[in-house]
Amino acid sequence: MISERLKKVILAKLKLDEFDIHDVTLANEIPGWDSLNHISIIIAVEKEYNIRFKMPEVLKLKNIGELQKLVDSKIST
């Protein structure tokens, strides 16, 4: 389940008003999320939650659900 907080960060970074984001949504299915914006969004998420990803974690992300899981695991530790 994608939290409202994560959704808000992503949409704000992409300057989108609304977009239906699910666990299985792929980054490139969200308008504007391409290799150009990818890192800016990852960094914005890090900033919002005050966490830091490792390079292999960034490379491994396959969809938004995995990003949410990664964020959750970082917050809980």
């Binding site: 290799s35 890192i39 960094i43 390079m55 490379l59």
Partner: peptide, 28 residues
Amino acid sequence: IKDYLFTPVNYTLTRFGLGLNINSSIVS
């Protein structure tokens, strides 16, 4: 190239730039 070069280099450079307290838009 995108997954194993561009993304890691982009991420590392961005992190490095932000660490230097430079404006985030310039860093990006």
